[in-house]
């Protein structure tokens, strides 16, 4: 059975790694006080999703590799998100002269 697999690493290994990376990203997203670090955590989460897509594409969809196409799309959207996010961050910094997430509380009830 092992000879038919694309590699000797089980699929579960990739999934475990991706879920760990995703949870680290979620924790960082909630707890960072620096706005730049929040954006970095979002990138970590997107990478975790990409690892999942690539692993499934290679193990379960070996001929069509639709997962790789989706990963390319996710990379595109992540690049756009990073550009817009950092522009928003710069204009926030210009208005508030801080990047502390706790000071952006205008919409808090």
């Amino acid at each position: 059975m092992l000879e038919n697999l694309p590699s000797t690493i089980p699929l579960q290994g990739y999934l475990l790694l991706a879920s760990l990376l995703f949870c680290i990203g979620v924790w960082g997203l909630i707890n960072s006080r620096n706005a730049v670090r929040v954006l970095m955590s979002i990138e970590l989460m997107l990478n975790a999703v990409n690892i999942n897509l690539m692993a499934f594409s290679s193990y379960l969809d070996g001929e069509l590799i639709r997962g790789q196409v989706f990963a390319v799309f996710v990379i595109t959207v992540a690049a756009a998100e990073a550009a817009v996010g950092l522009a928003i961050l710069l204009s926030l910094y210009r208005n508030r002269v801080t990047v502390d997430m706790e000071s952006f509380n205008l919409l808090r009830w």
Partner: peptide, 18 residues
């Protein structure tokens, strides 16, 4: 996530990778 990952029976091996 880990529980889902371990307890699900994935349809392995899939088609041959290209």
């Amino acid at each position: 996530l880990i529980r889902v990952d371990i307890t699900t029976t994935w349809k392995l091996p899939g088609p041959q990778a290209i």
